[in-house]
Amino acid sequence: MRNILKLGIFLLVVAGVAGLALSYVNTLTEPIVISQEQENKINSFKEVYPEAETVKDESSKYLKSDEQKIITEVNVAYKNGNPVGVIYTVEPKGYAGAVRTLVGFDIAAKKITAIKVLSQKETPGLGAKSSEASFMDRFKGKSAESAVEIIKKEPVNGNQVLAITAATITSKAVASGVNAAREHFIANFVKS
């Protein structure tokens, strides 16, 4: 009985010291992690909508229903106090889980400014190429007024986008995210 108590207390002390050490390191690293994530977010906003002066998260205003599951965030870009662009975060389902993508729109031009794949778990060498600039650039400047279509040969008309070779599912997933954002953008930000 005494032995069990002794062993228990010893383990308690070991775990307690370990816990203290962990919480101390956490207090040191947590602020760095948070500010880094914030900075990453701002930098990636700049990439999809370079002209933004300030970007405000207005998800609660524009995403009322739970039906819009693909769109997870709506950020509005302002310049001189006026909304000029919209940056969506979309999470369409790819071949192996969500493909988190940022999609930027320009309100005046009704065009896609750029897209950026933030994170994906697609097959290395195939679907993972979706986060390379060569694929993301194919969406640049597409009109927001008609749906973006993924095709397997060289695009002929304006809103067709060439798929990644051997990764059609991933390409279509990215396009479906872009299209979901596009529909929401037309419905909410373009005055007809």
Binding site: L11, V14, A15, A18, A21, L22, V25, N26, L28, T29, E30, I32, V33, Q36
Partner: peptide, 17 residues
Amino acid sequence: VIIASFVTITEMVMHAY
């Protein structure tokens, strides 16, 4: 417990830096 603590510390430091 000792190994897990060091792994977690390594993980947090790596996440930050």
